Simulated scan of single mutants.
Amino acid sequence: MSDYTGGLPLHKLREAIAYINDYLDQDLMLAEIAATVQMSPHYFASLFKQSTGFAPHQYVTKCRIEKAKLLLARQELTIAEILQQVGFKSQSHFTRVFRQYTTTTPKAYRDAL
């Protein structure tokens, strides 16, 4: 087994991040992300955190919120459509998480643009 002090090798990190971005609209399981880079979930999670400063689930949530902000700015989708595109199951959960990351609601964020 290789010892990756300092986190994931860059190519594995890029592969994992690409996978996360490709499947943001779906339930992303740690085991699936780890499998894309041929690592155990636990080992992957610790190296991913070393590399990015975020646990995998925190990183996924951050990506979902960033994508939601971009989609909110474009105006052509409803908030309900956006929350589905970024992998949330309910509007209340989406609003709660969005507010944690941005201190505002999705509607208020859109209205302020």
Rank of each mutant, 00 (worst) to 15 (best):
L8W: 06
F98M: 01
G6L: 00
Q38M: 09
L47G: 01
G87M: 07
S92R: 13
G7L: 02
L72E: 01
R74Y: 03
F48K: 08
H93T: 15
R99L: 03
G87W: 07
H57G: 01
R64H: 00
R99G: 05
I65N: 07
N21D: 14
L10A: 14
Y59D: 02
P41K: 04
L8S: 00
A80E: 15
S90V: 04
Q91R: 14
D22P: 06
E66T: 10
A35Q: 07
D22K: 11
N21R: 15
A18P: 04
V60Y: 11
Q75N: 14
K12M: 11
D22M: 12
T78K: 11
L24M: 04
Y101T: 04
F88E: 10
T95F: 10
M39L: 10
G7H: 09
Y23M: 08
Q38K: 13
Q26I: 02
V60L: 08
I82F: 10
Y109F: 14
H57P: 01
G87Y: 11
D22Q: 11
K69G: 04
Q50R: 07
R64F: 10
K62A: 04
T36Y: 02
V97E: 13
H93I: 14
I82H: 09
T61G: 07
T103W: 06
D22R: 14
R99K: 15
Q85V: 05
Y23R: 13
R96W: 10
F54A: 05
K62Y: 08
P9Q: 09
M1Y: 09
L24W: 08
T5H: 12
S46M: 12
H57K: 13
V37W: 11
L30M: 02
A34T: 00
E15R: 14
R14V: 02
A18R: 15
P106H: 10
A108T: 01
Q84P: 01
M1R: 03
Q100E: 15
L71S: 05
H11R: 12
A68C: 00
H11P: 06
G6M: 08
E76S: 09
A55L: 12
A73Y: 12
L113F: 10
I65V: 14
K89S: 15
S90W: 13
L8V: 10
P56F: 04
K107R: 13
C63M: 12
G7D: 07
A80P: 05
A18H: 13
T52G: 03
Y4R: 00
S51C: 03
F94P: 08
Q58S: 12
R96S: 13
Y59Q: 09
A68G: 06
G6I: 07
K67L: 05
A45V: 11
A16Q: 06
Y109I: 04
S51A: 08
L71C: 00
Q75G: 05
D22S: 14
H11D: 15
Q75T: 15
T102Q: 03
H42G: 14
L72N: 03
T104L: 04
T36E: 02
F98K: 09
F94I: 03
G7A: 03
I79T: 00
Y19C: 01
